[in-house]
Design a protein around this nucleic acid. Structure first.
Lengths: 206, 206
DNA sequence: GTCTATAAAGTGATAGAC
DNA sequence: GTCTATCACTTTATAGAC
């Protein structure tokens, strides 16, 4: 086998592990399954990772860093805050329905992190990152639509993250896309109510 | 050891398994860990369960049956629909914060069921049960408060389940009780807007 | 650096004594 | 029925040849 740099091997193994977890679940992500997915020998695994736990730690850490929530970016484009919210939620939902295994893997890894002693603080970091990213999108969207939020932005951001998480769990369970869409409809409407126009006269000319 | 009936052993092992999963996670719920928790021998396990998978199946099935969502019962008592909703959500949240391990175990078992071939239909059954239970509570609460819902009750029920699930995941991650409470505040307010008084004059005398 | 081979521990499941 | 002892297998991790 060709010589591969240690860092390349690390990322190749992490990506392989994520694929295995997405396909077969975290319980099936044994070192053997991961090296088979990455087409490496078992010894190569332990050449770059001291243990399976160390690899899982690196996997969770890399996911947090990669989480840019780019799927919600479309929220910032519209001049109508309700439409912007609905479009942003739909963009996330499309990613979920298009790649359910990945979202399932993220939830399994989240639950795994909560159990692992040396990863116990990562869920908190992860959610702080989610909340911050959504809060930033809310501020951007409000500026585009020329509105202001009548509730603290962090509270609205947490609400949005909670709704997307809840919709995700329910959809993964019953795959009812239509019903999930109606929940997102209601969420967008309810949150749009929290936006007050900056130019009062605009309110009268919809 | 005294002779224990087969059915007693079954329930004792299922309860022990739930405790182990709550305490140490589903990955730690080996047959040995479970029989140790139940203070039985390994052979006793296989005397009442053909396999570990069969026990997990029985565990998930018993949880679905036991899920009466009794925690939300307080929703039905108030004559003010907003207060009733907020109290019901708080009742669920109190159960979560008082026993986080159990909710964590339920989510892990949900994700486990999604992966297991012969359990793949259980998540759908489980969520149908959740939605039906909450829908029933919504009807009861509306009758008590003398209001009617201006949206289909199943849609509102699914929204409530999604919100509680999302709040659960976020709270398990960062344990921010105050912020989670504000999400529940907003949820109760938003859903209360969907209730229209049956006696119009009552609206004018709050 | 990368491999094969194997060690050491843990797993689900079973046989057979009582 | 219940137990101890053990099988057959899988897992993580490592040793040592190349």
């Amino acid at each position: 086998m060709a010589r591969i740099s240690s860092t390349d091997r690390r990322s190749a193994l992490i990506e392989a592990a994520l694929r295995v977890i997405g396909r077969d679940g975290i319980a099936a992500a044994t070192t053997r399954a991961i090296v088979a997915e990455a087409d490496m020998s078992l010894a190569s695994f332990h050449y770059v990772f001291r243990s399976r736990d160390e690899m899982m730690h690196a996997l969770v850490a890399s996911l947090i860093e990669a989480q840019t929530l780019a799927t919600l970016e479309s929220i910032a484009e519209s001049t109508n805050i309700h439409h912007a919210l609905r479009a942003g939620l739909q963009a996330y939902f499309d990613v979920l329905t298009g790649n359910p295994h990945q979202e399932q893997a993220l939830i399994e890894l989240l639950m795994y992190s909560m159990r692992a002693d040396d990863l116990a603080d990562l869920p908190q970091v992860q959610y702080a990152s989610y909340h911050r990213a959504v809060a930033h999108l809310l501020v951007t969207a409000a500026a585009s639509a020329r509105v202001e939020w009548v509730r603290p932005v962090p509270d609205i951001a947490r609400t949005i993250v909670s709704i997307t998480d809840g919709v995700t769990l329910a959809w993964l369970a019953d795959r009812d896309t239509v019903a999930s869409g109606r929940v997102l409809d209601f969420a967008a409407e309810s949150i749009a109510v929290l936006a007050r126009p900056l130019d009062p006269e605009r309110e009268l000319t919809p």
